[in-house]
Computed example of a mutant assay.
Amino acid sequence: MKKILIIFLMVSSYIFSQGKKIERIVTLSPSITEMVIDLGEKDKIVGCDKFSKVHSNLMNIENSLDSNDINEEKIIGLNPDLVIISEHNLIRGQNKIELLKELGIEVELIENPKSVQEIGNSIEKIGKALAQEERGEKLKTEYLNQLKEIKENDKNKSFYLQISSNPLFTSGNKTFLNSALEHIGVKNIFQNGGTWFSPSLENILERDPDIIFVTSEREKNFLLTQGGLKDFFSEKKIILLDENIVLPTPNIVNILKKLNNEI
């Protein structure tokens, strides 16, 4: 009770009034932070998660937050007008997010896109939350048009996506990352794999992918040192993915353009 009372006193003079301008923003996801910056509101970010600080070059911001373990007192101390979160933040922070709302702090939830097309909805929603509706709609339209430009016919090639080797981990056909890769005209060998799962080497060999996408040089080296299997993998086209492909933002079109030319 004492802790809650302290928190309440910290914000007792800070309850939102209708129509209040958004001047102080807290973001808890690197993809959200990137889109806030795309909308021209970088200078209003007063706190963000530690990954955003590095990814979006916000090292001047002193307040580094943990997106996996939300510190509600730290957020309240930043006196934000708006806190923007993703579904990922709710895994361990649902109660803390609810507390922020109870104390009158505006919280905007951005759903995790399930396809590259849905990224447009994310930036549009963030634009509305920031009172940048026109800018958000414009960026959404520009993004979807760019996406159409790189859409090509089926390349008649299949791929396997190597996320990790210990254990083997890949994506089925119901993830954002799969949607991004299939947008350039290649098909996942695990079309009925659902979301994330662990396949066997036998499964991969049986489905005989034309292309293997890896997330790091380590994963590539793993495939090429699998004893009698290294000949199988060495004959495949192995492509190292840009680490930023996992971020569902409009800037993914630049990554997909390069991949499209590489295949």
Rank of each mutant, 00 (worst) to 15 (best):
M1I: 14
M1R: 12
K2R: 09
I4D: 10
I7F: 11
L9C: 09
L9P: 02
L9A: 11
L9W: 09
S12M: 14
K20I: 14
K21Q: 14
P30T: 09
S31L: 09
E34W: 07
M35W: 08
M35I: 10
K44L: 10
F51Q: 15
S52Q: 09
S56D: 15
S56V: 09
L58V: 11
N60W: 12
N60P: 03
I61A: 09
S67H: 14
N71K: 09
G77V: 11
P80N: 04
P80D: 07
I85E: 08
S86R: 04
H88S: 13
N89H: 03
N89G: 05
L90V: 14
L90D: 04
R92G: 00
Q94W: 07
Q94Y: 12
E98K: 13
L100S: 00
L100N: 05
K101E: 13
K101I: 13
E102F: 06
E102L: 12
L103Q: 11
I105P: 01
E106H: 10
E106P: 00
E106L: 11
V107N: 05
E108S: 10
E108Y: 10
S115Y: 01
Q117T: 09
Q117D: 14
G120E: 12
K128W: 06
Q132G: 04
K140H: 08
N145T: 15
Q146M: 09
E149W: 01
E149T: 04
K151L: 04
N156Q: 14
Q162P: 01
Q162F: 03
S164M: 08
L177A: 02
N178M: 05
A180E: 01
F190D: 03
G194I: 00
T195M: 06
T195C: 01
T195S: 12
S198F: 01
S200A: 01
L201W: 02
I204G: 00
L205F: 07
V214S: 02
V214Y: 00
N221L: 04
F222R: 01
G228L: 12
K230Q: 14
F232R: 04
F232L: 08
K236D: 10
K237Q: 13
I239P: 02
D242W: 03
P250H: 10
L256D: 04
L256P: 00
K257G: 01
L259Y: 06
N261W: 02
